[in-house]
Design a binder for these strands. Structure first.
Lengths: 151, 151
DNA sequence: CATAATTAAGTTGATATCAACATGACCGAG
DNA sequence: CTCGGTCATGTTGATATCAACTTAATTATG
């Protein structure tokens, strides 16, 4: 006993700091999410709500379990998020006629309207972010992030 | 009143789907975080806890407000996360001798030990993720994510 | 058709995230 | 020295995140 644990060498920490994609992804996602949260605040949406509402704009109303993999989001997280959006009247849900286990989700008129309001903000903010990434290869970034989302 | 809101055109949704970095970053970060959470479970750490502990391994014990910008994390989020790590005895804190407002954070011996245990897992997992990104330009990805974290 | 396996959702409990607000410590101007 | 501004941190309330468990409906098997 009383065996002294050696301190984790500083070089190991620097190896992680230099390589870790997970850390960088969390960090970048937090910062970007915060930025869009602030920008979208005037219309009363968070970046996540904006993405969820946008993903509901489909010809065929999706079910929760269709959306979860698309958003790479846990199904139960989505359930909780939708509860808020339904309460606010932005999303409507109805039991699937074909399969009573399922639930079909669609944008309400107010849901459409709020997205309309949000679009100019999204465009302005997105342009600003792209400008800040000045010169970096956007296509590589987008492709890599999509790939990560499919892990 | 009763002015019918036009549905958000499908093309607008497709524009967002095609371009939105925020959506892709959240999605990728969720998937990647989940993956590391699962891999690190045997040692009892989440990806975020791993990153926080790792960022504490510095010659000079940092304060909360030094770490928050480094992690691009809200200060109060960090406070909450540290509470858990302190409770588990992985992190120790002490009031800054020079400035009693501040608090210096450092890894306990158990904190060092758990990082030791986590390292082989992190290496294996990170190698696997890099392999899955097969051929994509890692340096561009890392640089872009760092840049996003500084927004 | 009856029962087992599967599938879609919901619930619970723990942590994560952040804005808004509150407290106490430091510091500079007068 | 003291008062006003700033700084470091903490607290609260709302939502986000996910694993584990539960319920109800469907499907597959014998």
């Amino acid at each position: 006993m009383s065996e002294t644990t050696p301190a984790l060498p500083r070089e190991v920490t620097l190896e992680v700091r230099d390589r870790c994609l997970c850390f960088r992804a969390q960090r970048g996602a937090r910062a970007l999410g915060r930025r869009f949260d602030i920008a979208l605040k005037p219309v009363g949406l968070t970046n996540g709500q904006f993405s969820i509402l946008m993903s509901l704009n489909r010809p065929e109303p999706p079910r929760i379990s269709d959306l979860a993999p698309f958003l790479a989001m846990d199904r139960t997280t989505l359930t909780a998020a939708l509860k808020v959006l339904e309460r606010r009247g932005l999303v409507e849900s109805a039991a699937d006629a074909e399969d009573k286990r399922g639930k079909r989700l669609r944008l309400s008129p107010r849901g459409h309207a709020i997205l309309h309001e949000a679009m100019p903000i999204w465009r302005r903010e997105h342009d600003a972010v792209e400008a800040a990434l000045d010169g970096m290869d956007l296509e590589t970034l987008k492709a890599a992030l999509m790939k990560l989302g499919e892990l």
